Amino acid sequence: MQHIQTVLAKSGAYSRRETGRMIEQKRVTVNGIPCTHSTEVLPEDVILIDGKPVPEPAERVYLAFHKPAGITCTAQKAVEGNLVDYLNWETRIFAVGRLDKASTGLLILTNDGSIVNPLMKEEAAKEKEYIVQTKRPVSDSMIEKMCEGGLLIKGKEASPAFAEKTGEFTFRIILKQGLNRQIRRMCSAFGNHVISLKRTRISHIHLDPLEPGEWRHLTTEEIQLLKEGIKGKS
Rank of each mutant, 00 (worst) to 15 (best):
S103F: 06
K126P: 05
F94G: 14
E123N: 11
R136W: 03
K121A: 09
I93K: 01
I93Q: 07
E144K: 14
T104Q: 15
C147S: 09
G149Y: 00
V138H: 03
R98H: 12
R98N: 10
P118F: 02
F94K: 10
V138Q: 01
A102P: 00
K135D: 04
M142H: 09
S103I: 09
Q133F: 05
K135E: 07
A95T: 10
D100R: 13
P118N: 01
T134S: 08
I115Y: 02
L152I: 14
I108V: 15
D100K: 13
R92T: 08
G150I: 02
A124S: 14
K145E: 15
S139Q: 08
I108A: 11
A125L: 09
G97Y: 08
D100E: 12
Y130A: 00
L107G: 13
L152P: 03
L99S: 06
R98F: 10
R98P: 06
P137V: 00
V96I: 14
E129M: 05
E144W: 04
D112N: 14
K135C: 07
K128T: 00
E122S: 05
E90R: 14
G150A: 04
P137I: 00
R136E: 13
L119C: 02
E122I: 02
G97A: 11
R98V: 10
S114I: 09
E127F: 01
E90S: 14
L99M: 06
L151M: 15
I143E: 08
L152C: 12
P137K: 00
R92Q: 13
N117A: 12
S141Q: 14
P137W: 01
A102C: 02
K101S: 12
I93W: 05
T134H: 00
M146F: 11
D140V: 12
A124C: 08
A125E: 12
E123Q: 13
V96F: 00
K145D: 13
N111T: 11
R98L: 11
K126M: 15
I108C: 10
E123Y: 13
E123A: 15
K135G: 09
L152M: 14
N117M: 02
I115A: 04
L151Y: 00
R136S: 10
D100L: 05
Q133H: 08
K128V: 00
D100S: 10
L151N: 05
K145P: 00
A102K: 08
I108N: 07
L106D: 11
